[in-house]
């Protein structure tokens, strides 16, 4: 690349930065950083999954005495609700892109409701189980995995609540939609984790 050519492209770049201000650049960094963080976070789940597989394949008496296994029907309904909410939040984001704020709020609220339903279903399931987290490796890993994932769902719902509240602030999206985009990304992440978790815990019994 000739020097003159380089100079001209660089000047254009600098000019673009000065024209747009630093916020857009900053927003791109934030999304990049958030994706890096999610990749790192996924390794915690991966570690728990590997631990679960090692425990389960090596265990001599996996289920505690008096436990037959896990009921799949209600968790399956829960799964369907949570996975569908990933599509609902996608439509919410589409509405925001089209600057249809009420469409966004409606679908965003629907996502929150579905996430809360999932948490409610999880709580009902926990309360009805005949074993606790001290009941062997089965009990320990079950509550650890579902609990750690549940914490993520709770975080997601709280983040969604904040984003919903902020959508009523004037000029909230003047600086970009990083909050909404990253919350939505986080929600998809929580969903994918749940699918793996459901297969490991409920399907593979």
């Amino acid at each position: 690349m000739s020097t003159a050519n380089l100079d001209s492209t660089v000047d254009a770049d600098l000019q673009a930065q000065m024209a747009h201000g630093a916020e857009h650049e900053e927003e791109d960094h934030r999304l990049f950083g958030f994706i890096v963080f999610l990749l790192s976070e996924s390794v915690i789940f991966l570690s728990f999954f590997v631990g679960y597989i090692v425990y389960k394949t090596n265990a001599t008496d996996w289920l505690p005495a008096g436990v037959e296994g896990l009921e799949v029907r209600e968790p399956f309904i829960n799964t369907v609700v949570l996975v569908s909410s990933s599509f609902v939040i996608y439509f919410a984001e589409r509405f925001l892109h089209k600057e249809n704020l009420w469409g966004f709020r409606t679908f965003w609220f629907l996502t929150m409701a579905m996430g809360s339903f999932f948490l409610y279903g999880q709580a009902v399931e926990w309360l009805g189980l005949p074993f606790g987290f001290r009941d062997g490796l089965f009990g320990g890993t079950f509550y650890l995995l579902t609990g750690f994932h549940g914490l993520h769902v709770l975080t997601g719902v709280l983040l969604q609540g904040i984003m919903l509240g902020r959508s009523f602030l004037p000029n909230n999206y003047a600086g970009g939609e990083f909050g909404v985009v990253s919350t939505s990304l986080f929600w998809h992440f929580v969903d994918v984790i749940w699918i793996v978790l459901f297969i490991l815990i409920y399907v593979w019994q």
């Binding site: 790192s40 991966l46 570690s47 001290r134």
Partner: peptide
């Protein structure tokens, strides 16, 4: 994250009596 996973489970073993 792997160390964090190990530390959290060890802390659970130590404090609430799980058996990992």
């Amino acid at each position: 994250p792997a160390l964090t996973a190990g530390a959290v489970t060890l802390l659970l073993d130590l404090t609430v009596g799980t058996s990992f």
